[in-house]
Design a binder for these strands. Structure first.
Lengths: 220, 220
DNA sequence: ACCTGAACACCGTTCAAGT
DNA sequence: ACCTGAACACCGTTCAAGT
């Protein structure tokens, strides 16, 4: 990367590129400075601290996922699924950033755009009032928490395939299973579960539930 | 706390007590050593590194949540809800530990006991085969990811009430909402969402979905 | 106005030395 | 066998100095 005049955009670009290229490493100002051919402390001219920088990078991921979902054809459910899937994929591609989804509260434009999209799809589905808000909470909370979990696993594991095929349970190794008949009975099946299976099982359940609520509302 | 002969149990006790007493602080060996009246590096006699220590503490939380759920009366759904609720509560009570739920793979006895409980309840519900495994994945994954998210928020926020009443969105402050009609329309309702609302909306949707699958199975 | 580099406080971890 | 304490590499962050 050639030396560029620093600004917030350039720095966030470099953060995401770094997170993509070194999926097992956390972002440090030192590495970021090297990538930008700049002193490690130069970032403090543009962001108050590391938290703010991370938030800006997360906001960018939210914007990207929303764009992708808006570009997707289909009904509200297909488009919500596209959003949720894109969030997971982007988090897995940038583990060091995706792992921080817990801190997203103080919203940037990308976060708000994603909220707007979710509310719009759920409104199209036929929800309103309390049901709409609860559905938004379920989808948004699930997406953030699960994307963070996927990214954190990708960050920790050396054996990661980067596509979510991280074993959910890699071994029962040291634990004696004799007192746990159900675990023993399903041992093989449990070991085949991976991160994306978990993700999809959860979001399918939530969207099913929303679809039913919406249908009941229409029938009323 | 009086000086005690160190062993794994004593250290895990101290970790959880520290996490409870200083909900805004991460666990450090220095603070842990002070609490145990022992040098910061003494822990390396009993745990290979900090990861292993954290895993042991998480395993204890899993064991506690499982015990509480087993002691709960009611049908499978009530008992699953008890488990999930207890996991969230324990994570919020020990933010520095609960925040690490992503790393739980290499399982200890407490983790396996919780898996056994989940599989048992879902079997009682009438699930089997693939449906059982998918339901297990959805509930387990949701609980871990969301408990971690709650704990991470509790760790970051100074204004935390420790009971999950952390605002999900605290402000739209700097962002101009003129381009986001749905967000603007629901602004007030969105600001009332807290961490536990999100948690309950999600788990209710997942359990609804499981109940329907189970009923369909019975009807078949 | 923006970047540099020394400095500081604070981490996890290692290892030789103590008892 | 277990604990101590010095040491190391590595963090985020501050601030005076440069240009």
């Amino acid at each position: 990367m050639t030396r560029a005049r620093l600004d917030q955009r350039t720095i966030v670009d470099a953060v995401l590129e770094l997170a993509r290229q070194e999926p097992q490493a956390r972002i440090t100002f030192k590495r970021l400075g090297e990538a930008l051919s700049v002193d490690a402390t130069a970032m403090y001219r543009h962001f108050r601290n590391k938290d703010e920088l991370t938030r800006a990078a997360l906001d960018r991921l939210a914007a990207l996922a929303t764009e992708a979902a808006r570009a997707t054809d289909g009904d509200w459910r297909a488009r919500l699924e596209a959003f949720v899937r894109r969030m997971a994929a982007l988090s897995l591609e940038h583990p060091a950033i995706g792992a921080e989804w817990a801190m997203v509260d103080p919203v940037g434009p990308g976060d708000v755009a994603s909220d707007e999209f979710l509310l719009e799809m759920l409104t199209i589905a036929g929800l309103s009032g309390d049901e709409l808000i609860r559905a938004y909470a379920a989808v948004s909370g699930f997406t953030l928490a699960q994307s963070a979990a996927l990214a954190q696993e990708a960050l920790l594991r050396t054996d990661t395939a980067r596509d979510g095929t991280i074993p959910w349970i890699s071994t029962f190794g040291a634990v004696d299973l004799s007192g746990f008949p159900h675990v023993r009975a399903h041992r093989e099946a449990l070991l085949t579960i991976d991160g994306l299976t978990v993700y999809q099982a959860g979001i399918a359940a939530i969207l099913d539930s929303i679809a039913r609520t919406a249908d009941a509302g229409v029938a009323r």
